[in-house]
Amino acid sequence: MRIACPFCGERENGEFTYLGDAKPKRPAMVAIDGGAGAPGEAEAFYDYVYLRDNFAGEMSEYWYHGGGCRSWLVIERNTLTHDIKSVRAAPGAGAAKAGAK
């Protein structure tokens, strides 16, 4: 499996670190900041942290190019064949960190 980084070109996959499925989105968690917490919040968080589609077939995933440009990437890859369909920069990569200032 070789990954064509949009910034660095084609590299062996050992340069990359895998985070996982790009689908789960972090839900709002009012309770964390001392608020009352909306109904269903804990369930939504449980779902986000622990449950996975674990899909057999084409899936969007987050990978990090630590051995190269250090960018977060979104890769469409088939988990049955390891074939890679597309690689692009993760939109807003690094934004969470910048916003945390």
Binding site: G14, Y18, A56, E61, T79, T81
Partner: peptide, 17 residues
Amino acid sequence: DGYNSYAQRGNMPVMED
């Protein structure tokens, strides 16, 4: 290997490791 997979085969970086 460290990535989701249903293919019963792995890749070179882990062999090297």
